[in-house]
Design a protein around this nucleic acid. Sequence first.
DNA 1: CTTATTACCTGGCAGC
DNA 2: TGCTGCCAGGTAATAA
Length: 296
Amino acid sequence: MPELPEVETIRRNLLDKVKGLEVRRVEILSPKFIEHPGPEEFAVRLTGKVLGDIERHGKYLVLRFGAGAGGGEPASATEELVVVHLKMAGRLIACRRSEPVVKHTHVIFHLDGGWDLRYIDLRHFGRLAILAGGESPVVTPAPSRRLEKGLKALGIEPLSPEFTAEWLAGYLARRGGRIKAVLLDQHVVAGLGNIYVDEALFEAGIHPERRASSLSAAEAAALHQAIKVILRHAIDFRGTTILTYVDGEGRRGEFAAKLKVYRKHGQPCPRCGTTIERAIVAGRGTHFCPRCQARR
DNA sequence: CTTATTACCTGGCAGC
DNA sequence: TGCTGCCAGGTAATAA
């Protein structure tokens, strides 16, 4: 479900609603969503902590839980970092405790003041984990460290100053894969997914099956600009709801109304009127205008 | 190393 | 009303 604009929207919503609240109890309804440590230890280590800042890295969220009011130790000694990846259908929602617990609710952080932070996931792909502190090296088996490894391996943030047209052109020149596959690779640019890759390629006039190394410097620059503009625009509209996505307050994102090609196959291209096509590229449903996005 | 394919889950929807 | 098959916002493991 969520790509960078959706995850960023959730981050902002959660900061607004539940930052500064203490964790009274962690209720784990489905243990398999806790990647590390075990579910009991996960709950114990977070109980009594206070939710501080929330960071977004690509499509990952990192929630900082600091020392509670009772603790005399410095915050750094007891701080826990919780990493969350929502994958296709995960939701992270701040709501009142009185709200009904819907089907597929897997973890509930019961907070002060009658607030809950709930993890809900229809397709069961997402995971949560506590990041290892500096003093605990990775002794744990690899399958329980996927979130941590994925987070460390992320590529460049597309809305950071380091993401320049020159960098993108230089990187693409060295890759032989299809441009769509390269843009979906989180080790390259962090946070793009199927919706925004299709939209950015349309905006830049580039066919999704082009080889990355075949793009000219001018095309790479157009793509760089399109990625930044679309991501910022989508954040302004609180993300895109197609099927299941809701933001951190349970509301739909409104960017679906602004999409130009994603899931528009069979409809006329908004620029030239040619019928939008759908194909499978990089294993994903891919939408493009065959005229505006020529193969060569 | 790079690139392509598949498995992981549940549920909505179109077509018969 | 069923039933079947396809589709879904992601990515790690596996194969080549």
